[in-house]
Design a protein around this nucleic acid. Structure first.
Lengths: 188, 188
DNA sequence: GTTTATATACCGTCTGGACGGTAAAGTGCA
DNA sequence: TGCACTTTACCGTCCAGACGGTATATAAAC
C-alpha cells in the first residue's frame, strides 16, 4: 500500500497505546520505559528510537490526549442542538462522553506527566486558558457556564482517581442538572 | 525537664512537614526518603524508624491531610450562618478557604500517594463517600449542593496542578456564584 | 542507690535491584 | 549501498530498605 507498515508512525501509536494502558493499570508513578517497550512489543532501544527520552514519551502522550479530546469536541459540535451556552455545553459533553474508554487513560497520562515533570502540562494549561477565553466570549450566562465546566472537571477528577462515590443514577442526575444549569442559569 | 525533647511525636510531625514541603517543591514523583530525611533534619534510619516504609510515610501524609481538612471544617461549622444547604456550604467553604497555605500541599500529597500506589487513596475514597451521604441526607436542594461541591473540586484541581486560568476576580466571581447557587438553586 | 535489663529513638553504611539512557551491531527495504 | 528502524548488550545512577550499632530513658532487682 502506501508508506511503511512497520514504520515509525505505527510504532509510535503502539507505544503510546501501551503507555496509556500501563498508566491506568499500574499507576502514573510506576511507568517505566522497560514496561512500555515490552507492552508495545518492542525493545527498549526501539522505544528510545521513537521517543528519545521518557520526557518525550510523556509529551507525546499528552499531545495525543489533547488531539483526541479536541477531535471529540469537534465531532460533537456537528450534532449538538443550538441553544444557550453552546460552547460550555460542548465542553461538558465532551468530557462526559469520553468517560467510558479513553477518558481514564487520558487523565492518567496527565497525572503521569505531572508527577514526573509538571512542566509537561504546559500545553494543557494553554488549552484550558483558551477554553476560558472562548467561554467568556460566547457564553450567554458566564456564571452558569463556568460552574458547569468546573463541575464536570470535578466529576472527571473523581472518576479518574477512582474516587467517585456516585452511582449510575447519581451521575445521570448530575449530568441532567448540569444541563438545566446551562439552559436556565442560577435562580433569581 | 520532662520526657524526651526528641520524641517520636515531634519527629513524625517534622517528617510529615518535610515531606509535604518537598512534594510541592519537587513534584510528587520525585519524593525520596533521603530527601525527606535530610529536610526533616534526621537520618534515613531515623526516618524509617518513624515510618517503616515509604508507603507508611505516604499513608501518614494522607491521614494528616484528612485530619486537617476535617478540623478546618469543624472550625468553620461554628462560624457559618444558618441557611439552606448548610453542609454543602461548609464543604465548599472549607476547600476554598484552605487554598492559600496548606491546600496545595494537601492535594500534592494525594498526588504523590496515588502516583506511587493508588490504594493509598482508600481513606480519601471513604471520606468522599461519607460526604456524599451527608449531602444527600441534609441538603435542601441536592442538585445545587452536588454541583457546588463538584465545581469546587474542579476549581481546586485546577489550582493544585497549577492549571487554573482564573484571575483573582474570576475566582471571586466563581465563588460568589457558587454561593448564589447554594442559596437560590437552579432556575425554574 | 547502684547495677542489670529492656525499651525507645536514632544514626550511617551497605546492597541489590530498578531504571533511564547509550552505543554498536543487525535487518530489510529503496 | 544507504537509510530507517530495531535489537542486544551494557553503563551509571538513584533509591528503598536492611542492618548493625549508639545513646538515652525507664524499669526492675538487689
Amino acid at each position: 500500500m502506501f508508506g511503511c507498515v512497520r514504520g515509525r508512525k505505527n510504532s509510535r501509536e503502539k507505544i503510546l497505546d501501551a503507555a496509556a494502558e500501563l498508566v491506568s493499570e499500574i499507576g502514573s508513578g510506576r511507568l517505566t520505559l522497560d514496561a512500555v517497550a515490552e507492552r508495545a512489543g518492542l525493545s527498549k532501544g526501539g522505544l528510545l528510537y521513537n521517543f528519545p527520552s521518557k520526557d518525550a514519551l510523556l509529551q507525546g502522550m499528552i499531545q495525543r490526549m489533547i488531539d483526541e479530546v479536541s477531535a471529540e469536541k469537534e465531532a460533537l459540535r456537528g450534532q449538538t442542538a443550538p441553544g444557550p451556552n453552546l460552547e460550555a455545553r460542548l465542553c461538558t459533553a465532551t468530557m462526559l462522553n469520553m468517560r467510558c474508554g479513553n477518558m481514564r487513560e487520558i487523565a492518567n497520562g496527565l497525572l503521569a506527566a505531572s508527577s514526573e515533570n509538571p512542566r509537561l502540562l504546559e500545553p494543557v494549561r494553554q488549552i484550558i486558558k483558551e477554553t476560558l477565553e472562548r467561554l467568556k466570549e460566547t457564553s450567554d450566562d458566564l456564571d452558569a457556564s463556568l460552574l458547569a465546566w468546573l463541575a464536570v472537571e470535578g466529576l472527571s477528577n473523581f472518576e479518574i482517581h477512582d474516587l467517585s462515590p456516585f452511582s449510575e443514577q447519581d451521575r445521570e442526575r448530575i449530568v441532567a442538572s448540569i444541563g438545566r444549569l446551562l439552559n436556565k442559569g442560577i435562580a433569581e
